[in-house]
Amino acid sequence: MRRDNDNWIADLSRDGPKLDGALSDLRKTLVRNLHKALSNHSHVDDSFVEDVVQDSLVRILDRLEQFAGRSQFLTWATTIAIRIAMTDLRRQRWRDVSLDQVVSDADFRPERAVDNNLGPDEQIERKTILDTMQAVIQTELTEKQRTALLAEMKGMPQDEIARHLGSNRNAVYKLTHDARKKLKHGLEAAGYLAEDIQAAFAN
């Protein structure tokens, strides 16, 4: 049965056969969409998708009031299912990796990003920017900001950083955003604007 957004919300807000029918239709759509969305993950099987869809239906019903009708309901529902699936896949991939393993020795060494293929002026500019950044990292960032930023740059997913810090993804995003802002403002105070930074590292 085809439903518009209002019908989806109405049916999912009821009890009885209307709700059961809507949940059954939503479940089938999410299974199909997740298979397409995760088609590049070869180890994703039917059982994984079924589990994710089950969790997704609960989450979608919980958040029904948050649906603002600015997209198709099924698109919105699919975004929630994808987030649950991806979070689970990342957890599986990183479950045996500790935050300590990722950030221990993961320091910022400016000399690593000096490119000997560049001309002398460009090399000096890069080095000055990187030295300034190193100073800001050491003096301005909190321990948590430094840890979250380094872990993220080493490829650790925010959900996983959050799990180790006893936090959540939004809080980790705030930590790294605050760290980036401090670095940006520190570079600006030294005379380097965003466009200078992008130009110096465009090669």
């Binding site: 993961a106 690593r112 990003a113 920017i129 950044m133 080493k154 965003a194 930074i197 992008q198």
Partner: peptide, 15 residues
């Protein structure tokens, strides 16, 4: 230590 690529990615993000 962060690789050259990781440092360049950090600079992109800061920009």
């Amino acid at each position: 230590p962060m690789s050259k690529h990781e440092i360049e990615e950090l600079m992109r993000l800061i920009g």
